[in-house]
């Protein structure tokens, strides 16, 4: 075994290994013994547990509260006066002058903009699912990832802890704009991840396009869209433009491009990505080009971390988009 083979083998080692037994009881006991575990916290926690139980029980009733924000939206065939309940299977429809606010169980809310048609599909504590047939919604969810889903004619938006605006026409042409956290959009096995401050085009046949940051240069965005949705010859030209115009801030786009270009082009895309945002330790060129999930996830974590730092600290500290570190 040579040095490189050893290096490659090390890079394949799992970063995480679950302990063979649950270590939590031991930790809890030690904290309790030492007095560090402040026992009075159990009181509000117990109350919170009861409250959560009641809320979950309520959410299980398969209906969500709806409030009219403007005009008189329809639930089924009934005009909503001020507020009402949206039950599983019900359609909520707004016209050009009405808007509504849906309480997504107890985990968030969805504002339904004018000219929108949306259906409640599942209302359970562990799955909250709407179908957006057409129109625009603004969703805001505060929950663990993958509890809230919005189906569109072109695929499904999966909440990873976030706020976003999703619009679609009845065919599935649409746009996703994430304003907090992260959203995954999935069509079959085809998926894109969109971070806050990023947008993504959606099309009926191809599903999610490649996300790009808000404010990305227009020629870069045009080239990305051409790469996503145009014919093969155009795609080849588009990819050259994408690589030429990409900036470190566009790493999240290139990470997606890497997985969608012809295998022969992956090396070029990887090299450009690595030049803009160097890969984290343990991610090798070979593994990334082979689309090994550990390498891709490792790279994504770094890109995501840098992106979040840049967004969160925008206007406060200048962040190096290659490293995520504050500039001196």
């Amino acid at each position: 075994m040579n040095e490189q083979e050893l290096h490659d083998a090390v890079s394949r080692l799992p970063k995480s290994i679950e302990p063979p037994r649950d270590l939590w009881p031991g930790i809890e006991a030690r904290l309790a013994r030492s007095g560090a575990w402040r026992r009075w916290y159990w009181v509000p926690l117990a109350l919170a547990a009861v409250l959560v139980f009641l809320l979950i029980a309520r959410a299980e009733r398969s209906a969500w509260d709806v409030t009219a924000l403007a005009g008189r939206p329809l639930i089924g065939t009934t005009r909503l006066a001020a507020s009402g309940r949206l039950r599983v299977g019900d359609w909520l429809q707004t016209d050009d002058s009405s808007r509504a606010l849906i309480a997504v169980g107890r985990i968030g809310q969805v504002e339904v903009r004018p000219d929108t048609r949306v259906q409640l599909v599942v209302a359970k504590a562990n799955e909250h699912r709407l179908a957006l047939a057409r129109g625009t919604i603004d969703a805001k969810v505060d929950a663990v990832p993958r509890l809230f889903f919005v189906e569109t004619p072109a695929g499904t938006a999966i909440d990873l802890g976030c706020a976003y605006t999703l619009e679609t026409d009845s065919l599935g042409n649409g746009l996703l704009y994430v304003t907090a956290g992260e959203v995954e959009f999935q069509t079959g096995s085809h998926a894109s991840r969109v971070l806050l401050g990023a947008l993504m085009q959606i099309r009926p046949t191809t599903g999610p396009g490649i996300p790009y940051v808000e404010g990305a240069p227009a020629p870069f965005v045009r080239a990305l869209i051409a790469f996503d949705f145009a014919q093969r010859g155009t795609r080849a030209r588009a990819i050259r433009t994408v690589l030429a115009l990409a900036r470190p801030q566009d790493a999240l786009s290139l990470w997606h491009v890497l997985q969608r270009v012809d295998p022969a082009l992956r090396g070029v895309v990887y090299d450009r990505l690595a030049a803009l945002v160097p890969p984290p330790p343990g991610v090798t060129r070979r593994a990334a080009i082979a689309l090994e999930s550990r390498a891709l996830e490792g790279y994504w974590t770094k890109i995501q971390r840098i992106h979040f730092r840049m967004m969160v600290l925008r206007g406060v500290r200048e962040i190096d988009p290659r490293t995520g570190l504050a500039k001196p």
Partner: peptide, 23 residues
């Protein structure tokens, strides 16, 4: 802020990574 449930969730999320390092 002292929320033990949150701390337990932190343990759940990070135990594997910490255990791998310790191991």
């Amino acid at each position: 802020a002292g929320d033990q449930t949150a701390f337990r969730e932190l343990y759940r999320q990070h135990a594997g990574r910490v255990y791998a390092l310790c191991l």
